[in-house]
Simulated assay, not measured.
Amino acid sequence: MIDGRLDSKGPRGALTRRQAAGALAGLTALAAFGARPAAAGSARNVVLVHGAYADGSCWIDVIERLQAAGYRATAVQNSLASLAEDAAATRRTLAIQEGPTVLVGHSWGGAVISEAGNDPNVSALVYVAARAPDAGEDYAALAKTFPTPPAASGFVRSNGFTQFTEDSFLRDFANGVDPVRAKALYAVQGPIADGLFASKTTGAAWRSKPSWYAVSTQDRTTSPDLERFVAKRMKARTIELPAGHLSMISHSKEIADLIVAAANAG
């Protein structure tokens, strides 16, 4: 580029037409996704932990936005069999990151990142409509002090595992998500071990790591008031979204922007 003009001959220090086209395509992608590029000195790695009744594919929309902005995004695949196994899977993913990493958890994934988030590479925690237990806390007892969400009556149990009925999944778990997408998410639903939610964390990473929280005001799976309580308790920088439980799908731009804010805060 010379005096603002493209030199098609591509002299040293100048862009070829193909390079310029590639750069323009990259800028167009950033504009389309609405994400800011990674800032110098910020965390460039993001590890995303899914919740119960889901798998890592629930982060696809957020991952695409983060990748367009220059971040390395990796989704953990939880077993949903025990807190120990899910925390171990998260630690394995953290171990292959190079440099500061933002650790993100949705729903049950909030318990996992609270347990595994003391890893020295973790620069910030982001909770998305997520559990945020204190060390050793009986989180089920805490949840009972808040309004019971409609999804609580929509489960079926078999052979030691629990999952949503299709009606409840579509109506209460995936409310606000396009119905066609919601049915696909139901098809990849991850059943949970019956004792999963009774697990207690041995630590609370949010007590020592800067934290962000996205409250879903139309959540029918977790009480929005419970979400606000834990966000305030951890002194998280908090946003509220007019979303159901799966805000990372229905409001992927806002969730990606929140993650970028956490990445750039350091």
Rank of each mutant, 00 (worst) to 15 (best):
A256S: 15
D194S: 08
D86S: 01
A111M: 15
S252Y: 13
Q189K: 05
A214V: 06
N159T: 05
T93K: 00
E98P: 00
A204L: 00
S114G: 12
H106W: 06
R207Q: 15
G34W: 07
F33I: 00
Y53R: 00
T201H: 00
S82E: 07
L196P: 11
A43Q: 04
K9I: 11
G22F: 09
Q189I: 02
F164V: 07
A69Y: 02
S57D: 14
S79F: 01
V180D: 11
H245K: 03
A54E: 13
P150N: 12
P210C: 11
G110D: 08
F197L: 15
A73K: 01
T28N: 11
E254C: 06
R237L: 10
S107E: 07
E64C: 05
K232T: 14
G176W: 05
A265K: 06
V260A: 15
S123I: 00
W108I: 01
N121K: 15
P37Y: 03
E166D: 08
G10N: 15
G4T: 03
T202G: 15
A54G: 02
H245F: 06
A124E: 05
Y71A: 10
S42I: 05
R181V: 13
G266R: 10
V102K: 10
L30F: 00
F173M: 08
G22K: 13
K253I: 09
A231I: 03
H50C: 02
D178W: 04
G203P: 00
Y53H: 07
H106A: 09
A261S: 14
E227H: 01
A151N: 13
A25I: 10
R72L: 13
A143H: 00
M248F: 11
L142H: 01
P179D: 10
S42H: 12
Y71N: 10
A21N: 09
A39S: 12
P224R: 03
E166P: 07
V112K: 07
C58D: 15
H50V: 02
A20I: 00
K183N: 07
L48H: 03
T222K: 00
T202S: 13
I60N: 11
A73G: 00
R171L: 15
G160Q: 01
A262F: 09
A32T: 04
A214K: 07
T93A: 12
E64W: 06
S42Y: 12
S123M: 04
R44C: 04
I2V: 12
A89W: 10
A21C: 03
G110A: 11
S211L: 02
A32D: 13
A29I: 02
H251I: 04
K200T: 14
G110R: 02
E115M: 05
K253T: 15
A95F: 09
L80S: 09
G136V: 03
R233M: 01
A29S: 13
F146T: 06
V177E: 11
I60Y: 13
R17P: 08
R12F: 15
D219M: 01
T93L: 03
Y127N: 10
A174H: 06
R131A: 11
R5L: 14
Q163G: 14
R233F: 00
R92W: 10
V49I: 13
G109A: 05
A68L: 02
S107A: 10
S82D: 06
F146C: 06
K209V: 01
F33C: 06
R5Q: 13
D55A: 09
A89K: 10
A23C: 05
L30E: 08
R131Q: 09
V128W: 01
A52T: 14
R12Q: 15
